[in-house]
């Protein structure tokens, strides 16, 4: 039942979280300290992964970037999840005109390609973490709302909800105690796979210059900055790219394992 997927996925993600927490202590250099004389050096004993175009230590920047990428990616999935769950529960449990309006809005949002919509939003709000989170939330809640709404519609019909109502509990109690806990498993599975998207999309936005700005270390923007030197110092682009890929893979394995466990 608990295959290697779960452990590998959890191990990879755990390692990243650990690196993010310990980064200030294990990073060998200040990630912002420039040393133009030592710019664009290959790996050496002093700089294990070399230095970038401004002579900053690449390893330190990658480690410190985890402190930005991980929490922002987590928020970029949690916020849409919270909004979508709240709306989905209200829609599924009470139905009526509110349900109709919310579902039509979600139809409308789903008719657009997700990335384009997010780019438009970030573009009009200006670059930065705040507008990234707003655009992730504004677009991402739709799937959570639909998922939770469908679950609530199912759970509402179950006898334990009827039993809770006949026992005299009010709607808020029934929702919080009896309906919501039973939707969590589905939501959690989707949330894990949504993290894969958040990690890659966050890096993509930063790569395009809409996300986290230099000099703050961030994997996507590091790739963008190192682009001109790809023929001479390929490691500067390859390593951050690998770091993103492995993290996304970790989340994907975790999501897969949870999905399989649910079926088992």
């Amino acid at each position: 039942m608990k295959g290697p997927k779960l452990w590998i996925g959890a191990g990879v993600v755990g390692l990243y979280v650990l690196a993010a927490i310990l980064a200030p202590w294990i990073a060998p250099h200040d990630p912002l300290a420039q040393d133009v004389v030592a710019a664009l050096q290959g790996p050496s004993a002093a700089h294990l992964l070399g230095t970038d175009e401004l002579g900053r230590d690449q390893l330190s920047r990658i480690l410190m970037a985890a402190r930005i990428d991980l929490p922002v990616a987590a928020l970029a999935t949690l916020l849409p999840c919270l909004l979508g769950t709240a709306l989905g529960v209200i829609c599924g449990y009470f139905g009526g005109w509110f349900d109709a309006i919310v579902m039509r809005i979600s139809d409308l949002l789903q008719a657009f390609p997700m990335y384009i919509l997010m780019i438009v939003l970030v573009f009009s709000l200006g670059p930065g973490v705040r507008s990234l989170l707003i655009s992730f939330t504004a677009v991402g809640w739709v799937v959570y709302a639909r998922l939770v709404r469908a679950e609530v519609l199912r759970i509402r019909q179950t006898e334990y909800v009827t039993a809770a109502i006949t026992a005299g509990f009010g709607a808020p109690r029934v929702i919080v105690r009896h309906v919501l806990p039973n939707t969590l498993r589905q939501t959690l599975i989707y949330l894990t796979s949504d993290l894969v998207f958040a990690v890659t999309a966050l890096a993509a936005f930063s790569f395009l210059g809409f996300g986290i700005q230099q000099p703050t270390p961030e994997w996507g923007s590091m790739i963008a900055a190192a682009q001109p030197y790809i023929t001479t110092q390929a490691l500067l682009t390859v390593v951050p790219g690998l770091v993103i890929t492995v993290l996304a893979l970790g989340f994907a394995l975790l999501g897969d394992a949870l999905q399989e466990r649910k079926r088992a």
Binding site: E159, Y160, V161, H178, P181, L184
Partner: peptide, 17 residues
Amino acid sequence: RTAMVFQEPATALNPTM
């Protein structure tokens, strides 16, 4: 005061409580 006992004990109990 009334209370009800349902048919299907498998579905009449909240699995998360």
